[in-house]
């Protein structure tokens, strides 16, 4: 049996991809299953989906802890983009480390003989993870923007998976996408996703990455029974695990969700405050001295509303780059 974890963000289609992967395996007369992380996550939030492929019936219904393969739909999630760079002292950080960081060690539990399939513009030998392991890399965001018009990288990454692991053929992936995406999104969109998968397959580079990279340990507040407040009535508090209770979302690094980010031209800004009002995430700060606004990239999800509402075109949206 082969176990696969797909890391993505809400809206990138990690769950649909897992289902299409299972469907592809079934087209090869294998047995397969796919399931979501059963969360209530919104668009952009980190999500996980799981798939298993085997020759015979799969009995376990538990989560996957030791995957053979990981597929990472978004470069941020593998820590390939550093959103918090230069944010020491931000209210959402503790000692310079974002407490609600989505940056995770995607190699956790990964089979050393397995592989990581990554959405990144870098070739395998320029990728550094915690484990020295086989990786397949492809710039899936660019392919998705070209073929679909928005950064849903799921289908493209299935192509990359086929190329990297050879667990299923690209032909079966195409069938799986037509089967699963076709049902949910219609045939036209499914066909565009097949195209993305093919491009993903063609452009994927396979090689070994370097290992030994350390990820800040993620501390999660998991108190014993006696430490939990009765009735879940919780007040605002700072703990070694970060903030809890009222106001504690300030530590959530939602900036890692974005594909584009806004740049403000102070010269053009008339300080009308429309962007300040219309930002759903409170990322725009007023700078009275300069009569301009600042952007808090720690939270900015890159929706682009600020740029749209600006009456003097002082805000432009720029594609996020790795680095």
């Amino acid at each position: 049996m082969k176990e696969i974890i797909l890391h993505g963000r809400g809206g990138q289609g990690a769950v649909l991809a897992a289902q299409a992967l299972a469907s592809a395996a079934v087209f090869e007369d294998k047995y397969a299953m796919a399931f979501p992380h059963f969360g209530a996550e919104r668009r952009g939030a980190p999500v996980a989906a799981f798939a298993r492929i085997a020759e015979g019936r799969i009995l376990t219904k538990a989560h996957i802890y030791k995957p053979d393969y990981v597929i990472v739909l978004d470069p941020w999630l593998a820590g390939l983009v550093d959103v918090a760079k230069g944010m020491e002292g931000h209210e959402g950080t503790s000692g310079g480390v974002p407490m609600g960081s989505v940056k995770t060690d995607i190699c956790q539990g990964l089979n050393k003989k397995g592989a990581a399939v990554l959405n990144t513009a870098r070739p395998p030998d320029e990728v550094r993870l915690s484990l020295e392991v086989c990786v397949g890399t492809v710039d899936a965001t660019t392919i998705a923007l070209e073929t679909l018009g928005h950064p849903a990288t799921n289908s493209c990454m299935l192509g990359a998976f086929a190329k990297t692991t050879e667990e299923v053929s690209i032909g079966s992936i195409e069938k799986g996408i037509m089967d699963v995406f076709g049902e949910r999104l219609g045939e036209g969109i499914a066909e565009r996703n097949v195209k993305a998968a093919k491009l993903g397959f063609e452009r994927t580079e396979v090689g070994m990455c370097s290992g030994g990279r350390e990820f800040p340990a993620q501390k999660k507040w998991l108190p014993d029974v006696d430490e939990l407040p009765p009735g879940c009535a919780i007040r605002s508090q700072d703990t070694e695990y970060g903030k809890l209770g009222p106001g504690s979302t300030v530590q959530n690094e939602t900036g890692s969700w974005r594909t584009f980010h806004p740049i403000v031209d102070d010269e053009k800004c008339t300080y009308c405050m429309l962007c300040w009002f219309h930002c759903p995430d409170g990322c725009i700060g007023r700078v009275p001295d300069k009569e301009s606004v600042s952007v808090d990239y720690f939270y900015c999800k890159g929706c682009g509303i600020c740029s749209e509402v600006c009456p003097v075109d002082a805000i432009t949206m720029v594609r996020e780059v790795e680095g």
Binding site: G39, L222, V225, P230, G231, C232, A233, R235, G245, P246
Partner: peptide, 21 residues
């Protein structure tokens, strides 16, 4: 004056301990 959050949707990491309480 002393805000608390009462009844926030609780994920599976906590439910079982609350039930035990």
């Amino acid at each position: 004056k002393d805000p608390i959050a009462s009844g926030i949707v609780t994920p599976r990491e906590y439910r079982q301990e609350f039930a035990y309480q």
